[in-house]
């Protein structure tokens, strides 16, 4: 294994989500190019000290999302899609924004106010 993933038990999210995030991150930053062969489920499980079933679950989710492709008996590969890294970047951002939307809804904040808040925060951002 090249670099072991950094997984945390105190991170509130389930392990499989953390693994998904770490794999997506490697693809996003370009370390794992399209066509790159992922470590086998067992290899990754042993390297990260996480159960096989958890890693398997992460791979299944990634496959469902079209991020990786598993070839029977050969292993899993990063999907060969043009602009996959961009797509993943966008998905990552969307995920956070969706959480913000959900929180806003829970607090009874409407769409307009949410957008206004976002603009205000962007304006405050020191650059």
């Amino acid at each position: 294994m090249t670099s072991p993933f950094v997984l945390s038990q105190s991170d509130g999210r389930p392990m499989y989500l953390q693994i998904i995030e770490q794999i997506r991150l490697r693809i996003t930053v370009g370390d794992w190019q399209p066509g790159f062969k992922l470590p086998s489920i067992r290899e990754l499980a042993v390297a990260t000290r996480v159960s096989v079933i958890t890693v398997k679950r992460a791979y299944q989710e990634l496959e469902k999302d079209g991020v990786i492709i598993t070839r029977q008996g050969k292993g899993s590969y990063v999907a060969e899609i043009d602009g996959l890294d961009l797509k993943l970047r966008r998905e990552e951002l969307d995920q956070h924004l969706q959480e913000a939307i959900a929180v806003a809804r829970g607090l009874g904040i409407d769409q307009e106010e949410l957008l206004a808040r976002l603009k205000a925060l962007l304006a405050d951002e020191p650059e």
Partner: peptide, 27 residues
């Protein structure tokens, strides 16, 4: 965990401490 590099090997381990079990257990 090292044991599981080999696909034919299995581990049953008992504990009253769930933290030990949580990370590495499949079942």
């Amino acid at each position: 965990m090292e044991v599981l590099v080999d696909e034919d090997r299995s581990v049953l381990f008992s504990s009253h401490n769930t933290n030990d079990v949580e990370q590495i257990s499949d079942k």
